[in-house]
Simulated assay, not measured.
Amino acid sequence: MVLQIQPPTQPEVIYPDSDGQPVANNTIQFGWIVEIKQNLDWLFADDPNVFVAGDLFWYPVEGRNKIVNAPDVLVVLGRPKGDRLCYQQWKEEGIPPQVVFEILSPSNTQTEMDKKLLFYDRYGVEEYYIYDPEKNSLRGWLRSEDGLDVIPQMEDWVSPRLKIRFALSTEGLQLYRPDGERFLTYTEISRNAEQERQRAEQERQRAEQERQRAELAEQARRDAIPRLLQMNLSIEQIAQALGLSVEEVRTLAQE
């Protein structure tokens, strides 16, 4: 009798979707993360195969749950939209995030950021951008044959993948859509939406007032026809006076 020895069962690898740390360390950092993420969502809203996420754990290697990073904002072109607990690259046709953003806070150390750069370089990021709101400084890296290379001049830089333009002003980082429109904060988007709603309501009211004026003018012409007939004016004269056709006057006179 031959005994078959079953291979030991490999324990299931768990890929956590959180490390218990906050998304951001302060309101400034959080505001920038939300602004960039929301505007990229808006920019690619009509493309079903662009996935944008904020503070999402990215696991590039199957079975290695210690190899992980959570970019402040990541963009994956070629993968469908939809909710994910984490980004497991082997389940996404092996496609890594092509574009990554990090927003610095005072708690970020140089060692931490050096490790992030090595991670993004090793696992296939094509464009990497770091913005420091406190210092109002912007740095970027672009992939070449040798890996991620520093972008020497970020002012008016246009992302090859996203087609957005970067600019720095005294007020901070400015990002511009391909159509030239500036990225907006949530407050600005809400304010613009409210202004557009008010403009639409004003236009509706103007149209309603114009309709009512037209109805009153039409009724006034109708009411004038019997009086003008009593004054012995001819159908032709009434039509000319009221700006109506002869047939219209005849029809209204018979009502």
Rank of each mutant, 00 (worst) to 15 (best):
L118I: 12
K115Y: 12
P106K: 14
E171K: 09
I103H: 10
Y128A: 01
V100L: 12
E93F: 13
V99L: 10
Q153V: 11
G147A: 00
N108H: 06
P152E: 14
I164V: 15
P152S: 13
D146M: 13
Q98C: 04
D179A: 07
K116W: 03
L148R: 00
K116N: 04
F119C: 06
G124Y: 04
K115G: 01
T109H: 12
L142M: 08
R161K: 15
K116I: 01
L148P: 00
W141F: 14
V100M: 10
I130V: 15
W157N: 06
P96L: 09
S107F: 12
P160D: 01
S137I: 14
V158M: 09
R139W: 10
L118F: 11
G147E: 00
S105I: 09
I151D: 08
E181S: 08
L168R: 13
S159R: 02
F183R: 00
T111L: 13
G124E: 14
D156K: 05
G172D: 01
L104W: 14
R122W: 04
D121G: 11
L168W: 03
V150H: 09
Q153H: 10
D149R: 06
N136K: 08
T111P: 09
F101C: 15
D156H: 13
S107L: 13
V100C: 07
G94Y: 10
G124H: 03
K135T: 05
R143G: 02
L175W: 01
F183L: 01
D149N: 15
F166R: 11
E127H: 03
E93T: 15
K135C: 06
I95H: 02
S159T: 08
F101I: 14
N108Y: 12
T111D: 14
L168N: 05
E102W: 04
Q174W: 03
E171T: 11
D114N: 13
S159N: 01
P178L: 02
Q98K: 08
D149H: 12
Y129R: 04
G172P: 00
W141D: 00
E102H: 10
E155L: 05
P97R: 04
G172V: 01
I130N: 08
Y131H: 03
D156F: 09
G180Q: 08
R143H: 02
D149S: 15
F183P: 07
P97E: 05
E145F: 01
L138W: 02
K115R: 12
E112R: 13
T109W: 11
W157T: 06
N136E: 07
V125N: 02
F119S: 06
R143Q: 08
D121V: 09
Q174F: 04
I103T: 08
D156C: 02
Y176E: 05
I103G: 08
E127A: 02
K116F: 03
V99C: 04
L104M: 15
P96A: 11
Y123W: 01
L175P: 08
K135I: 04
P106W: 07
A167T: 05
L142F: 02
D146T: 09
R161P: 06
K115W: 07
F119G: 00
E127C: 07
K163G: 02
S169H: 08
E171A: 09
Q110N: 12
